[in-house]
Design a protein around this nucleic acid. Structure first.
Lengths: 237, 237
DNA sequence: GTTGTATGAATGAAGG
DNA sequence: CCTTCATTCATACAAC
């Protein structure tokens, strides 16, 4: 069978339509459509899985030790870690993963925003999309999101931008991509239990069970359905 | 920096297959190279991660039982670990304000979603809630909203998407996501050791540790270096 | 190459 | 059910 064959399945049926030469996440392969994933994304996924694999393994080892004897000393689950896989090849490209309005589009959007007091109707969005499409690849969803975000962010600014940046959208800085994977995993939520240092999982050969559990309970939550798997849906018809 | 270190564990050992150039499924886009992945592949990966998450969670639960029973001091030999960041703000201590499904919960939800064709009855929701409660804080409303949103969003995605013919065929390859979810994962690498029954992981909130370990040693072993990164990897024949 | 920031997108929840 | 909001995640890009 074909590995690279277009299909749909997964939680949401999907089928692409729209722009075919869109360089976004879709591309044609032998006449079929497929999603594109960058090395970076793959790397990330790979790491997530690896992290789980490691944790599962350690937990199992731990259990074995327990079962065998309450030999605490045997608690040493890990040992020196080796690098299972790291150096990813070359991840140069970055297929566009997110739409970015062109200056022209932005200008039009802002103009319309003022005209509509920030809330254009569905039909209006469709019209706008059509017009913007003349200036670059775009979809209704993009427009919809743009207005959505615009409203939310303007509102936030007005209602005060107190130094209260600890909560809203101006704080958490997920640093460089290198740490992103772990960061995203451990700090997904619940800041009170998050570990301050990155690499908590690997900073030492032996990780305390308590810590691990902490991570599981609090931070081991990750985006279940990677957004890039989803299609860019066109907001309703 | 090193991400994953491992020594000599069954699972990770295999991850060693250094990733090379993976010329395999690459294609040129605007002069750049990218990897390609189908929806099925993505779905599969996502599920793999989810299963790991679930296993980890259960292992942790088990561990907790053990700890409680024997109250082994050695377990916390680690470092108490204090969070240096908690002091400043003060309000961030408050837990999250909105429910976020854990991977396990999500997996269950999706399974139920398929079973109920997206519309579980009131009683069903109650049942689900009860079960999900074993994996984290949750309320009926959460479940209700989840289904509500899911239906709406799936629908939206489907709209504007001319149904396609590739679907029926493609589905065969991956799974109808109902009972095959785990199967596909289990048999990912080693079909001979796969579990014959589906949903073995979910038959009850707690499954025996031995079983789980069995799964890990036998069926849960998958190519650490995602097949889609290997050259010409042939997924099942 | 890192760190900070602006902003596109995902999603739980609320309102109608 | 549908639309909208609020919050958060993640990425593109600028600034260092």
């Amino acid at each position: 069978m074909e590995w690279i064959n277009s299909s749909s399945s997964s939680v949401q049926e999907k089928q692409q339509q729209q722009q075919e030469e869109n360089e976004g996440e879709m591309m044609a392969v032998e006449g079929l459509y497929t999603k594109v994933m960058t090395d970076e994304q793959m790397e990330l996924l790979r790491k997530q899985i690896a992290v789980y694999a490691m944790i599962c393994e350690q937990l199992v080892d731990m259990h074995k030790s327990f079962s065998a004897q309450y030999d605490i000393a045997g608690m040493r689950l890990g040992n020196p870690y080796l690098d299972p896989f790291m150096a990813s090849g070359g991840q140069k490209i970055t297929a566009r993963q997110r739409w970015t309005p062109t200056p022209v589009q932005l200008q039009i959007l802002e103009r319309v925003y003022d005209e509509c007091s920030g809330n254009p109707g569905k039909q209006k969005i469709l019209d706008i999309t059509t017009e913007l499409a003349h200036h670059g690849q775009i979809s209704e969803t993009n427009v919809y999101n743009w207005f959505q975000n615009r409203r939310a962010r303007i509102k936030r600014k007005q209602s005060g931008v107190p130094s209260n940046t600890t909560e809203s959208e101006a704080k958490k800085h997920v640093m460089s991509k290198k740490n992103t994977t772990l960061e995203s995993i451990q700090s997904f939520e619940n800041p009170t239990t998050r570990i301050s240092e990155n690499n908590i999982y690997f900073q030492s050969p032996n990780i305390g069970m308590e810590q691990m559990i902490g991570k599981m309970d609090a931070g081991m939550v990750f985006s279940p359905l990677p957004h890039w798997q989803m299609d860019r849906y066109d907001m309703l018809g």
